[in-house]
Design a protein around this nucleic acid. Structure first.
Length: 480
RNA sequence: CGGAGAGUGGCGCAGUCUGGUGAGCGCGCCUGCUUUGGGAGCAGGAGGUCGCCGGUUCGAAUCCGGCCUCUCCGACCA
């Protein structure tokens, strides 16, 4: 292992892949574009799953599981859907040593197969709404991949719901968008902007796509989750119909929404620094690591004894804590190792601390002495809990300030060009796909979203590119 | 899929241009002793058919051809 990481500001991409591998979150696999999620990275995903799953259940959803394989014909039933996903499909043509009658696709998303099942299950307005989520893997054959951000196979959850009315579907779509935003900000400490995707950026087959967008440490944007109101498009393609109270046959209104392992990429890129990861305490697999320090054998047994008691005490208090009692590494080495792996708090216990019935707490988000404090054993659990809370909030605050600092309101096209070099540009826009395409071509920035939270367009506001009357404000930025 | 770079013990690299008698260096790993409050020191040791296939040659990590994989930059995308 090399002693030092790549510098974050010098080469962000290299720093990113470096951190992931050194922190043992993931590794490259022998299969092109695929990655192996290692135990530490998977533990982070499990923490994400728990925090989200709880929110899904609280909003009335149930988990289920649909198959990995989908008949090829299914994906072709919704025209925009086919067009959007065809280039990315993995197709199975052979099975059991024989050519298949009909090829199967490996799901890139499950609207098709779930739509098919919903058409069997839904008969009456009494069956609605159907609120199902699944945790699974999907495959999209990407040209260029990147650990966590874009891999051929990735893990995610996809919620699929069916409703009696447009209003209910829209309400559900926005409810889940809110769930994602709440999760991102409170659990991952990643500040997000809730918005609507433009026509050209929306999900293939959706009526409206909503998303949460976040700013990464290199000031590029990352779509961190999406929520789609699918209207009746999939209901019509898959025949999802019900009889209403008046005995009239109606098509359902459906939604889908998803968040993937990509969010791990966001956590890395939003919070990480030159020393490595900085994990938000609420999701960190290890919230505190105890590092014992000693010289003689006598000190060793005393310190380890206290370290083990401290471990038990903190575990009993509900803290995810780890005791690093490896003999082969020095304390200094361990300090660096756990900082690289982003553990929010280090608990140092040495002879001095044993003698004085105290520990030293060092927080990951503040460097050196500034982040250190001495706490009596008696007050440890409470002090640590408070500290974790403080770190969680500090990470969020830092990320939000960073985003605000790099957010601009360009008044003309020249200013927009400069703004997207530096971060997010909130710009008035005429709403045309043409302007959007021009902006992308000329600045490499895409329309990330039209923020939901925005003032009415003032009189006389003009599109930043074409000068025609502005319809709304959009965020333009370079994106992952 | 277009452009660039790279594949040599577990990791990072040198050697390749100019083929030849030692495949080398740093980190890691193993053993022992001394160390341990910010990436310890010394001594001894293990580990590589040089990405794969083919060709040229008395002889190939090195030259030639093909293929595979990875990274970075673009177009596509969660």
């Amino acid at each position: 292992m090399e002693e030092h990481l790549s510098k974050r500001n010098e080469d962000f991409s290299e720093w990113y892949t470096d951190v992931i591998q050194r922190a043992e979150l993931a590794d490259y696999s022998p299969v092109r574009g695929c990655m192996v999620i290692r135990p530490y990275g998977y533990a982070l995903w499990e923490a994400i799953q728990q925090a989200l799953d709880r929110r899904f259940k609280e909003t009335g959803h149930q988990n289920a599981y649909f198959p990995l394989f989908i008949p090829y014909s299914f994906i072709q039933k919704e025209s925009e859907h086919v067009e959007g996903f065809s280039p990315q499909l993995a197709v199975v043509t052979h099975g059991g040593g024989q050519k298949l009658e009909e090829p199967l696709i490996v799901r890139p998303t499950s609207e098709a197969i779930i739509g098919h099942m919903y058409s069997k299950w839904i008969k009456s307005y009494r069956d609605l709404p159907v609120l199902i989520n699944q945790w699974c893997n999907v495959v999209r054959w990407e040209m260029r991949t990147r650990l966590f951000l874009r891999t051929t196979e990735f893990l995610w959850q996809e919620g699929h719901t069916a409703h009696a009315t447009y209003e209910e579907a829209e309400e559900e779509t926005l409810r889940m968008l809110n769930v994602y935003a709440d999760f991102a900000e409170r659990e991952a400490a990643v500040p997000v902007i809730q918005g609507r995707k433009s026509e050209s950026e929306k999900f293939p087959g959706a009526l409206v796509t909503y998303c949460i967008e976040a700013m990464m440490g290199d000031r590029r944007a990352l779509q961190s989750a999406t929520s789609h109101n699918l209207g009746q498009n999939f209901a019509k393609a898959f025949d999802i119909q019900y009889l209403d109270r008046n005995n009239e046959l109606q098509y359902c209104w459906t939604t889908s929404w998803g968040l993937s392992t990509r969010l791990i990429g966001a956590i890395i890129m939003v919070h990480g620094d030159d020393k490595g990861l900085r994990l938000p305490p609420r999701l960190a697999p290890i919230q505190a690591v105890i590092v014992p320090i000693y010289k003689s054998d006598e000190e060793r047994s005393q310190v380890l004894e206290v370290a083990r008691q401290t471990l038990k005490k903190l575990q009993a208090h509900g803290v995810r804590v780890h005791l690093d009692d490896r003999e082969e590494y020095t304390p200094g080495w361990k300090f660096n190792e756990w900082e690289l792996r982003g553990v929010p708090v280090r608990v140092e216990i040495g002879p001095r601390d044993v003698e004085q019935d105290q520990v030293v707490l060092a927080r990951r988000d503040l460097a050196g002495k500034e982040g250190k404090q001495t706490v009596p054993q008696g007050r440890l659990p409470e002090a640590l809990t408070r500290l974790l809370d403080d770190i969680q909030q500090n990470l969020f605050r830092q990320a939000r300030e960073f985003r605000e600092k790099h957010t601009y309101e360009p008044k003309d096209y020249e200013e927009l060009k400069q703004a997207v070099e530096q971060g997010f540009a909130w710009a008035y826009w005429c709403g045309s796909a043409e302007c959007e395409a021009h902006i992308q071509e000329e600045t490499k920035a895409t329309n990330r979203c039209i923020p939901l939270d925005q003032e009415p367009v003032p009189q006389g506001a003009k599109c930043v590119r074409c000068g025609k009357p502005a319809k709304e404000r959009a965020i333009f930025a370079r994106a992952y």
